[in-house]
Design a protein around this nucleic acid. Structure first.
Length: 197
DNA sequence: AAGAAGATCAAT
DNA sequence: TTGATCTTCTTG
């Protein structure tokens, strides 16, 4: 397998989100295959944080492609995103990491999650961040090559099937099919076609 | 200073 | 279906 470099994330966030499916995400002793992502764009996307959070607009100004955008949601869970910067258009966006198929460090994940079943470990953006030990201190660090924080991705070895579906848990721009997942994979948060209308 | 909304999760 | 729980932003 080949490490994913910065230029991977210097493309449209929807392309990055789709192409990330099947790659492997590493953090320290833990790793998992990416089986579900979502794209958020600073252009015409009312669900993107840049649309309603000044701090997010500042973040995209000050950081490079491949940087982690980590924030707390509902007062309980950290959510992990990768910053994308299209090298052609300049358009910025995020890939939300929504689900992994756990590969390595499964015992560590079980401990962090206080859960046993493999499908309970990384089947959602909050669960995934908890299982990988991602939190506030990882905000603003590189997910491409971070010695300190131990993050990187590797390219898929084999092609995966990918389908596009509506995004989960949002109230604006609900119609955009910017969620990408491997259909039938038991580790996704919400199966294909099952997002509430 | 106070209120509202929010890219979730697990128990009921 | 619901409650937990807190950060960010807006309004007064």
């Amino acid at each position: 397998m080949r490490p994913i470099e910065k230029h991977f994330f210097e493309r449209d966030c929807r392309v990055c989100a789709r192409e990330l499916i099947g790659s492997v995400f590493y953090r320290g002793e833990t790793s998992g295959r990416v089986v579900e992502t979502e794209a958020y764009s600073e252009i015409n996307d009312e669900a993107c944080h840049t649309f309603f959070r000044p701090s997010a607009r500042q973040f995209v100004e000050e950081n490079d492609a491949g940087t982690a955008y980590v924030y707390m949601n509902y007062g309980r869970y950290w959510l992990t995103n990768v910053l994308c910067v299209d090298r052609v258009s300049g358009e910025r966006g995020f890939v939300l990491l929504r689900a992994l198929e756990p590969l390595e460090g499964i015992e560590i994940m079980k401990r962090r999650r206080n859960m046993e079943r493999p499908t309970d470990l990384c089947s959602g953006p909050g669960k995934l961040s908890m299982a990988m030990g991602i939190g506030k201190s990882d905000h603003g660090t590189s997910l491409i090559s971070s010695q300190e924080h131990g993050f990187h991705f590797e390219e898929p070895e084999t092609k995966r099937r990918v389908v596009a579906d509506r995004r989960v848990g949002i109230s604006k721009a609900k119609e955009f099919k910017w969620r990408f997942l491997e259909p039938g994979n038991p580790h996704v948060s919400v199966p294909f076609g099952k997002v509430k209308p």
